[in-house]
Amino acid sequence: MLTNTTILGQIVVNGLNLSAVYILVALGFTLLFGIMRVVNFAHGEFAMLGGFAFYYLYAVLHVPWLLAVVLGAVAVAGPSLILEWLVFRWFYHKMFQSMIGLLGLSLVMTYTSLLVWDVFERNVPSAFDSILRFQGVIIPMDRLVTIGVSLAALGAFYFLMVHTKIGLAMRAAAQDVEIALTQGIDARKIYRWSFFVAVFLAALAGALYGQIYAVSPFMGERPLFVAFIVVILGGMGSIPGAALGGIILGFTESLLGTLYGGSVASYASFGIVILLLIFRPWGLLGTRE
């Protein structure tokens, strides 16, 4: 029998770990919406590609773990600029068209992957299988590393947005494209940058997701679903909102799942989203349109 303190500790550890992955998944999704006003239904598929890239680099080619995670994300984000040119750029600032168009793209990506990789789930060998014990609370090492990588990615992202010129330009474009253009900001360049960063984050999340769970062509469904909830909670387009939404969802699932079971946890997550959509449709930290 577990004591109350250890259960509480376990809830916090599980909650932190879920939140870290959820935030990472939601960041790229909210970034694309914030700057280009596209609802990227193919977001989960970029995470899926990130999972496969990581799988090949780490499990097949035995590239060192951290390098495999980062390289995998770059390997997906780089070539994805072709998709940006072919598909995405036609949908910028067309929210509803983008939903339909990118839903189609997501299906194409899923089923192409199915043809290439087949349906079965691949498992990435555990990189860190030790377990830390601290005051009765048990922390699996691979989860701790996930939290660490998510925090590092969040930090780097924050630095990019706040302390670099390109970040400033991205924020300016997010606030008002036309004014940004008159200030001499190259919109195409900003869009391509934002797209690269968004896909990089999605692919990174996919790699971590694949490491903890499994890699398969259909693995993108769950991250997309999570990104939606998190972003609706935090506010479409709001970056601090994605962080807050991720923490709320992660801890709701961990706390209610542990105390009241799985059904209550999903019930409550959706309940919060529905209440929010009724009373504060722009989300907790979003801007009212």
Partner: peptide, 15 residues
């Protein structure tokens, strides 16, 4: 019970 598609069982196992 868990939702189909869920891959995270830690909270339920803790319970």
């Amino acid at each position: 019970f868990y939702e189909r598609g869920s891959k995270e069982f830690s909270p339920l196992i803790t319970r």
